[in-house]
């Protein structure tokens, strides 16, 4: 760990970095204490009780129950602290605030494609504002990847056919690296980029800079018409979309589902898997007809039709 001190620490650039570092350094303290204890004890015993004569017979000691209890209970207490501390932080890090800004990340061999809600796209780069909670909704077009931002102390695997997400609030301006941390084939080590933390003002300027493309919701609306969604979903043959996002939907089989990103994706690509109560199983699959980015556009469009606030979780 001396080398870490010499090289300078990795910057703590998000609100969750410092709490994770406190826990990390607590773990380091436990590591150093017990390693030092064991090494010192071994050295002391090894020298103090070195063999003095070839025929020496040392006193035979069977064991000591109180000692066994002590060195069972103390480590239990220490790992219990690590467990509770680590779990509390992890659960907090798994729950994005309701007002987090969604940014969409699609991994493919071997690049990261980023979409912002207003339609701004970037590749192997991610611009975020300082002080604003950002939620990355991530999926993969091929194999499993992993989006890792060491300066923020977060990472999560990025899976094909699933949405996973991480969130963070950057609190230090600067340029930080992000990496693919899950081995994904030949170009794995080049599947990385830079994350830019900007002031909110600079971020707004960046977001609206250049030729203004359509927003994701607008792109989704065009798709909605082009793919013929409106022939059913606008006419009562299929469930309506207004105010759908975030609601709890009753299904034909009696169960319920939360209308979140993963649900909407599943309904577009595998419509037969969940039938909304009161409707027939007539929707064709759009699997293979839409890219992951187009699915995200459609979801953004559905979101734009109104959502129930406070229920945007997984």
């Amino acid at each position: 760990m001396l080398f870490g001190l010499l090289l300078g620490f990795l910057p703590e650039a998000s609100t969750m970095a410092r709490p994770v570092d406190y826990l990390f350094w607590f773990c380091i303290a436990v590591l150093v204490f017990f390693t030092a204890l064991i090494f010192a004890t071994i050295f002391y015993f090894a020298i103090r009780y070195r063999r003095r004569s070839e025929d020496e017979i040392p006193p035979q000691i069977q064991g000591n129950l109180p000692l066994e209890i002590v060195w069972t209970v103390i480590p239990m207490g220490i790992v219990a602290v690590m467990f509770v501390w680590g779990t509390a932080l992890f659960i907090r890090n798994a729950r994005p605030p309701a007002d987090a800004t969604d940014v969409y990340v699609t991994g493919k061999q071997w690049m990261w494609k980023i979409q912002h809600s207003n339609g701004r796209r970037e590749i192997d780069a991610l611009h975020v504002p300082e002080g604003v909670p950002i939620k990355l909704i991530m999926t993969s077009e091929d194999v499993i990847h992993d989006f890792s931002v060491p300066a923020f102390r977060v990472k999560k695997d990025v899976l094909p056919d699933h949405y996973t997400s991480i969130w963070f609030t950057a609190d230090r301006l600067g340029k930080y690296r992000f990496y693919c941390d899950q081995y994904c084939g030949m170009g794995h080590s080049q599947m990385r980029g830079y994350l830019y933390v900007m002031t909110p003002g600079a971020y707004e300027a960046w977001l609206h800079h250049g030729v203004q493309a359509q927003t994701m919701a607008q792109a989704g609306a065009l798709l909605y018409n082009r793919m013929g969604c409106s022939t059913c979903h606008g006419t009562g043959k299929g469930p309506p979309f207004a105010g759908l996002y975030g609601k709890t939907v009753r299904l034909a089989n009696g169960s319920t589902a939360a209308a979140n990103d993963a649900y909407l994706r599943q309904m577009i690509l595998y419509p037969g898997q969940k039938i909304v109560a009161g409707y027939r199983d007539i929707m064709p699959t759009f699997k293979g007809q839409l890219t992951e980015e187009e699915v995200l556009d459609l979801i953004a469009y559905i979101k734009s039709l109104g959502s129930k606030p406070g229920n945007t979780g997984e």
């Binding site: 017990f34 390693t35 064991i38 779990t87 932080l89 992890f90 990472k155």
Partner: peptide, 27 residues
């Protein structure tokens, strides 16, 4: 062995700690 296993085992607890693993996993 005792010394190195102690270090290996204790760093294993880092990785069993959820929030720390979320940081150093796959590094």
């Amino acid at each position: 062995f005792i010394g190195l296993f102690t270090m290996g085992g204790l760093t294993g607890i880092f990785l069993a700690t959820l929030a720390v693993d979320q940081y150093v996993h796959d590094t």
